[in-house]
Amino acid sequence: MEILQFALRKIIGGIPLILGVTFISFLLMVYYGPDKTYELLGKNPTAEQIESVRAELGYDQPFLQRYVTYLREIVTLDFGNSFSSGERVNSILKRTMPISLAVITPGFILGNLLGLVLALVAAYHRSGWIDKAIMGFSVVGMSISFLIVVIAFQLIFCSSYGLNWFPSRGWDVYSLSDYLRFVTVPTMATIFVALGYNTRFYRAVIVEEMGRDHVRTARAFGTPPAQLLYRSVLKNSLIPIITRIMFSIPLVVISGSLIIETYFGIPGVGKVTYDAITQGDQPILKAVVGLTAVLFVLTLLITDILYRVVDPRVSLK
């Protein structure tokens, strides 16, 4: 009951955020955005044809009314039809979202897990050569652009100039082995890019925790390293770790898959968003921005509940 109340309060508190995000993106993308009237018309349109297309796109309505229409679309989760394909935005998203999740999830989980493990090892051997080597690698990883990694990995693993082990593009998944064939290289690229940042962040968190008295005491009692790191350090530094993981979810799901999916020709939300950007397909862009904002508020809420779960001292008020 307490949690329910808390959730309700949080969702209401998130409304200004959603209003802000949708307002700014609406203003920029739709109101000041490209005029699609003439792209949808044939040659030499009559005044009535222009009029009817503008009415169809809603251009003839006043600003506020169009914005309210957009808000209603978010509440009812009904975003109309895509400009370029005419398909319903909902059915596009329904088709592409599972693919995006399938592409991004393994890399996201492994990238964070590996980052945590490396960070624990580095922090445990702080200032030793292991620490320096791990931190050196993570700075190198942070300095290579995502695009370079994607191009290089595709060259190395998917082309006749390299090992040519995996298909270079596409998404033809009907079985587990297909899935592994198509998902491996994108996953490796995701991990490679995320690892540097993750390791650095987690190491800073863990080093901070390792300096505390209770860890020193546990060490003095001769607790074995694995137990010390897991029980005394990791469990106590869960709050910043959860914060980072949770808050990267909305952005990783959209931005991360944008490049991966475009480059590997995977028909997920990222690819759809990319095409919508290049073609100015506003219904899709509106849907993606609106849903991301909602996702953000939900993330805020779940994060707060998780804080409570991992640390009972945190109160829900």
Binding site: V21, L28, G33, P250, L251, T273, G280, F296
Partner: peptide
């Protein structure tokens, strides 16, 4: 608000505007 708009979409929107 600015942190919750996907960065690439925001850039695209500003570029349009």
């Amino acid at each position: 608000v600015l942190d919750s708009i996907p960065f690439y979409l925001f850039v695209a929107a500003v570029a349009f505007a």
